[in-house]
């Protein structure tokens, strides 16, 4: 049976558990709860081992410094839960924000996740932010250009027409949380390279740092 691995200390058990239960509903999975102190080296190693088990589909952790180590080494998606998180819209996940930069890699990373959520009847909202790297070279006529651009974006990112696409311009990390709040998203799902070197994962860092809702980090190499 597929499992959602809820890993937390005793103090924040309820916070993590509620999100794990919601994820388990989506995945039609069981929740397996483990009590860990990620500051202890053995606990972190044991958790990574548990995540590697075939039956583990996703891990759910509280957002704190050690959670980055787990997320960057896990081959499974990790849902990072902000401390003290209380689901505003109830315990279930009904709407998910999926930021996509337009690259085939990012789209592939969250492709399975997208299908999982869609199959579970969850509303998906795609967010694309035009930044220095993703702004098109040309935008000829504003009356027509969007259609052509969006057609291509959806094909390249395997995003069907029935999934709403929100567009912004600027720095992606400054938009993701804001759009998630304005859209009433229960979860943000982000593909990422698992590299935390200087200058990398800026959108992921900013989102995890500022989100008031759980953030699912999907490794680019996943599944």
């Amino acid at each position: 049976m597929t499992q959602v691995l809820a890993a937390s200390s005793r103090e924040c058990r309820d916070t993590v558990s509620s999100v794990a239960t919601a994820m388990a509903t989506v995945l039609r999975a069981d929740v397996r709860t483990v009590e860990v102190d990620l500051t202890v080296e053995d606990h972190a190693a044991a958790l990574l081992d548990a995540l590697e088990r075939p039956e583990t589909a996703v891990g759910v952790l509280l957002r704190d410094a050690p959670s980055w180590r787990i997320a960057s080494h896990s081959s499974k998606p990790i849902v990072v839960v902000p401390p003290g998180f209380v689901a505003v819209h109830g315990p279930a996940i009904s709407r998910v924000l999926l930021p996509l930069d337009g690259s085939a890699e990012a789209a592939a990373a969250v492709g399975d996740t997208m299908r999982l959520f869609a199959d579970a009847g969850i509303e998906l909202v795609i967010l694309h932010v035009f930044d220095e790297a993703t702004t098109p070279l040309f935008w000829d006529q504003a009356a027509h250009a969007r259609q052509g651009w969006e057609d291509e974006f959806r094909i390249r990112c395997s995003t069907p027409r029935d999934i709403r696409l929100e567009l912004r311009h600027g720095v992606p990390g400054e938009h993701v949380v804001h759009v998630a709040v304005s859209e009433g998203a229960d979860l943000i799902a982000l593909g990422w390279s698992q590299h935390l070197d200087a200058g990398r994962a800026r959108t992921v860092r900013a989102t995890v740092a500022h989100a008031d809702m759980p953030v699912m980090l999907v490794p680019l190499a996943f599944p």
């Binding site: 935008w139 006529q141 504003a142 009356a143 311009h169």
Partner: peptide, 16 residues
């Protein structure tokens, strides 16, 4: 000429 369009994600009135 259409009367509405988009600049990236921003809806705009088309004045052309």
């Amino acid at each position: 000429t259409p009367t509405s369009g988009d600049l990236g994600g921003q809806p705009v009135v088309i004045k052309t």
